[in-house]
């Protein structure tokens, strides 16, 4: 097994470990519940704009 394959094995093992233990992977700052709510609200606002635009 070469170094690249070893690196892949290690990183995949880390990802699986985090997933099975239900803990964050830690490589990137995760989205919070608040972020999802904001994204949902903004999407709804754009949907209303698009619907409203049809009546202009």
């Amino acid at each position: 097994m070469n170094e690249t394959d070893k690196a892949l094995e290690e990183r995949v093992a880390h990802l699986e470990e985090c997933m099975l233990a239900d803990k964050p992977v830690g490589a990137a700052e995760p989205m919070t519940k608040r972020d999802y709510i904001i994204a949902g609200a903004v999407t709804a606002a754009f949907l209303l704009l698009v619907i409203g635009g049809a009546f202009l």
Binding site: F46, V50, G53
Partner: peptide, 24 residues
């Protein structure tokens, strides 16, 4: 409206799974 709101509406939904790329 179509250029900005239409584009944002589609993007806000279909781009959401990119968080998996950032996470893993």
């Amino acid at each position: 409206i179509t250029a900005f709101a239409g584009a944002f509406l589609m993007l806000m939904i279909y781009q959401l799974p990119v968080i998996l790329s950032a996470r893993f």
